[in-house]
Design a binder for these strands. Structure first.
Lengths: 196, 196
DNA sequence: TGTACATCAGTGAACGCGCGTTCACTGATGTAC
DNA sequence: TGTACATCAGTGAACGCGCGTTCACTGATGTAC
């Protein structure tokens, strides 16, 4: 990688878009730098002008994907009427996004370990989890749930993540009305956190 | 693969044990037939006397691992006092097992798609899910929860699966008392399914 | 305006690797007469 | 008991592949004087 010219950033982005296309087609495990090069009309060595190595491409991709999930979750909160509903909305939006972008979702979680090391650190600014934690904090402030916001956020996230993962992997091809079951699960979970 | 001699089954099992050892060490994605051969003291072509191809090794491994998870879940039900507690016990045992055998767990879910296609089919006899479904059915019969047993079983499984997956992947290295949070989550979930 | 030079984006060829699988084979053991 | 043959478990060498990465290079474009 040399010093960047003016079109450097754009080319970089184009390469990432090709890489994402290939991930969507073949899954992240089969992504190959050579094929990204082929599909972008570059020779393989050329990509080293834009990324220091293959892992950097995958990392950049995962970061962009996380941004998209964050945006989708943010949108799901628009016009939400109550803090209780907000938590359910985030959960169902999470699963819906995973179902709509399965390869993106799997890429994200195969690559992106959290940098957060304990609850004493604040979660990353624009991370999906920060939205859930925010909603949990407001829900508790509103008296809709009891318990620590971290616990509630973790619970909602776990449930949503489990439903998403199962539907994408183990239960792929299983014929059921997952949307209804997922909503029932999240409703029950939050009801179970209601103050006694 | 020719017709089997008397020690065939034992050798097969030994090969699987070596393969499992390698999966534990390096993860399932890096498992290589050549290395299994090397570690078992065979030449690579010899393995074809015992398995038709590499995938068959992985499949056999995943099936054995599923059996172990099933056994661990079965054990968690021993001496359980109520149907409500049984559901929580299954969930926590599921997560505990995943934490104790992370590579086994990840192998299972990277390979083993469910053969079940809808709720009208019964779940596989000795499958982990059949235990959860059984517990959910009994819990409803006992009036501890309301709703369809499939929904309740799916909810518990999803939550447990999400917690396990997050702890093994995204939250690996995150310092928290997951056992407490997991139990709180499962308690809340089942409380949320209590009859109104 | 012309020319020498530096920088730029990009390349073809090669390195070295490990993989799953197939092939033709070997030497030891068991069996039939 | 000896011998011819079949079966068995296992092997070394090779096939053909795709991978990430490095290297020495080229030809086009920009810049300084």
């Amino acid at each position: 990688m040399r010093t960047k010219g003016p079109a450097h950033a754009e080319t970089r982005q184009q390469i990432l878009e090709v890489a994402r296309k290939l991930v969507l087609r073949d899954g992240h495990a089969k992504l190959s730098l050579r094929e990204v090069a082929r599909e972008s009309g570059f020779s393989a060595p050329s990509l080293y002008e834009y990324f220091p190595n293959k892992q950097a491409i995958v990392d950049a991709l995962a970061a962009q994907v996380a941004g998209k999930l964050f945006a989708a979750l943010g949108k799901s909160l628009e016009g939400v009427r109550s803090e209780r509903v907000a938590l359910v909305a985030l959960g169902t939006a999470y699963v819906a996004w995973a179902r709509k972008h399965p390869q993106d979702f799997l890429l994200m979680f195969s690559q992106l370990g959290s940098k957060r090391r304990s609850t004493s650190q604040a979660p990353a600014e624009a991370s999906p989890y920060s939205l859930v934690l925010g909603a949990a904090t407001r829900a508790r402030a509103a008296g809709v749930v009891h318990g620590s916001p971290e616990t509630i956020a973790y619970a909602v996230w776990s449930a949503a993540h489990g439903m998403a993962m199962l539907q994408l992997t183990h239960l792929a091809g299983f014929d059921a009305d997952f949307e209804t079951t997922d909503r029932a699960t999240l409703d029950a979970l939050i009801a179970g956190f209601a103050p006694r």
